[in-house]
Amino acid sequence: NKFNKEMRNAYWEILHLPNLNEEQKNAFIQSLYDDPSQSANLLAEAKKLNDAQA
């Protein structure tokens, strides 16, 4: 299933973003579980936030 793979990839990438705190990571990961079809968008948002907090 495409979403499972996308979701897993997004999950791991978000988990390893160095500039997000636990609360931010948890919020993105919760959103992933709530709507796996948004994995790519959530990952993009997480990366933007990560870069902004660098």
Rank of each mutant, 00 (worst) to 15 (best):
N1T: 04
N1F: 01
N1M: 02
N1S: 03
N1Y: 01
N1V: 05
N1H: 12
K2L: 10
K2W: 15
K2Y: 05
K2V: 08
K2F: 12
K2S: 11
F3K: 13
F3R: 08
F3D: 14
F3Q: 07
F3A: 11
F3V: 14
F3N: 13
F3M: 11
N4G: 07
N4I: 04
N4D: 15
N4T: 05
N4P: 13
N4S: 04
K5S: 01
K5A: 02
K5M: 01
K5E: 15
K5N: 02
K5Y: 03
K5Q: 11
K5R: 03
E6T: 05
E6W: 02
E6G: 01
E6I: 08
E6F: 05
E6A: 09
E6R: 05
E6L: 12
E6M: 08
E6H: 05
E6D: 11
M7K: 01
M7S: 03
M7E: 12
M7A: 13
M7D: 02
M7H: 03
R8I: 08
R8H: 04
R8T: 05
R8F: 13
N9Q: 14
N9R: 15
N9Y: 15
N9D: 07
N9L: 14
A10D: 01
A10V: 04
A10H: 02
A10R: 04
A10Y: 01
A10E: 00
Y11A: 08
Y11V: 12
Y11M: 13
W12H: 04
W12G: 02
W12V: 04
W12M: 02
W12Y: 06
W12F: 09
E13S: 15
E13Q: 15
E13F: 15
E13L: 15
E13G: 15
E13V: 15
E13N: 15
I14E: 00
I14V: 04
I14R: 00
I14Q: 00
I14P: 00
I14F: 05
I14Y: 00
I14W: 00
I14T: 01
L15K: 15
L15Y: 12
L15R: 14
L15P: 00
L15G: 02
L15D: 01
L15H: 05
H16V: 03
H16T: 07
H16L: 05
H16G: 08
H16D: 02
H16Y: 07
H16W: 05
L17H: 04
L17P: 00
L17M: 09
L17D: 00
L17G: 00
L17R: 02
L17N: 01
P18A: 10
P18Y: 14
P18Q: 10
P18F: 14
N19Y: 11
N19I: 06
N19R: 08
N19G: 06
N19A: 09
L20A: 01
L20Y: 00
L20T: 00
L20I: 11
L20G: 00
N21G: 11
N21A: 08
N21D: 10
N21M: 11
N21P: 05
N21R: 06
E22T: 12
E22S: 14
E22P: 06
E22R: 15
E22Q: 10
E22L: 13
E22V: 12
E22F: 14
E22N: 13
E22K: 12
E22H: 13
E23G: 09
E23W: 13
E23V: 11
E23P: 10
E23H: 11
Q24A: 07
Q24Y: 05
K25Y: 06
K25A: 12
K25W: 03
K25P: 00
N26E: 07
N26Q: 08
N26I: 12
N26R: 15
N26F: 13
N26Y: 15
A27R: 10
A27E: 07
A27T: 07
A27D: 07
F28M: 05
F28I: 03
F28N: 01
F28V: 04
F28R: 02
F28Y: 08
F28H: 02
I29D: 00
I29R: 10
I29A: 08
I29F: 13
I29N: 01
Q30R: 15
Q30V: 08
Q30N: 06
Q30D: 04
Q30P: 01
Q30A: 13
Q30S: 11
Q30W: 15
S31E: 08
S31H: 08
S31Q: 07
S31I: 05
S31K: 13
L32P: 00
L32Y: 00
L32G: 01
L32V: 05
L32S: 01
L32T: 01
L32N: 01
L32H: 00
Y33Q: 03
Y33G: 01
Y33D: 01
Y33A: 01
Y33S: 02
D34F: 12
D34N: 12
D34Q: 14
D34A: 13
D34M: 14
D35Y: 10
D35F: 12
D35E: 07
D35S: 11
P36G: 11
P36Y: 03
P36D: 01
P36L: 03
P36N: 06
P36S: 04
S37L: 03
S37W: 07
S37P: 12
S37Q: 06
S37M: 09
S37H: 06
Q38M: 12
Q38W: 08
Q38L: 08
Q38G: 07
Q38R: 11
Q38V: 08
Q38H: 07
S39K: 04
S39D: 01
A40R: 08
A40K: 12
A40L: 12
A40P: 06
A40H: 10
A40Y: 15
A40D: 03
A40E: 07
N41S: 10
N41T: 09
N41H: 11
N41L: 10
N41M: 13
N41I: 11
L42W: 14
L42V: 09
L42F: 14
L42K: 10
L42R: 12
L43H: 03
L43D: 01
L43P: 01
L43W: 03
L43Y: 05
A44K: 12
A44V: 08
A44Q: 11
A44D: 06
A44P: 03
A44L: 10
A44H: 06
E45G: 12
E45M: 15
E45Q: 14
E45F: 14
E45D: 07
A46V: 03
A46I: 02
A46D: 00
A46G: 04
A46Q: 00
K47R: 10
K47G: 03
K47N: 05
K47T: 02
K47M: 05
K47H: 04
K48M: 09
K48G: 10
K48P: 01
K48A: 06
K48F: 09
L49D: 07
L49I: 05
L49H: 05
L49N: 04
L49F: 14
L49P: 01
L49W: 09
N50S: 08
N50F: 02
N50T: 02
D51P: 04
D51S: 13
D51M: 12
D51N: 09
D51Y: 13
A52Y: 12
A52Q: 11
A52P: 05
A52L: 09
A52G: 14
A52T: 10
Q53L: 11
Q53H: 07
Q53E: 13
Q53M: 10
Q53N: 11
Q53I: 11
A54T: 09
A54D: 09
A54I: 06
A54L: 08
A54M: 10
A54R: 02
A54N: 12
A54Q: 12
A54V: 10
